[in-house]
Amino acid sequence: MSEISTNAYVLVSAILFTIGVIGVMTRRNAIIMFMSVELMLNSANLALIAFSRAKASTDGQIITFFVIAVAAAEVAVGLALLVSIFRAKRTTNVDDVSTLKG
């Protein structure tokens, strides 16, 4: 069984990152936007771990733990906000919640 090269992993991570970016920019449902952000963060994690293996250095894997922890905190705050907005407006579509303009 031949080994998968680092380039292949990084390429996959770049594709996932691009899908995430496109997701945030085109979708209007806040929950889907959160999922796309998660995709971006996890694609970075994949790249970090691939690089970490290629260099035989553990730094990248440790960074991944930090990223996972922070992403969880961010989503917790995000979902709490979403619930409070949903109570007031009955929608998760970001275009329906736009009173601030100018």
């Binding site: 991570s13 952000v37 960074i63 995000g78």
Partner: peptide
């Protein structure tokens, strides 16, 4: 939402520099 989006860029940038 935009801050998390920016965080995605930050982490991916760190991965590339690493």
């Amino acid at each position: 939402l935009l801050g998390a989006f920016a965080a995605g860029f930050l982490v991916y940038g760190i991965a590339l520099i690493y």
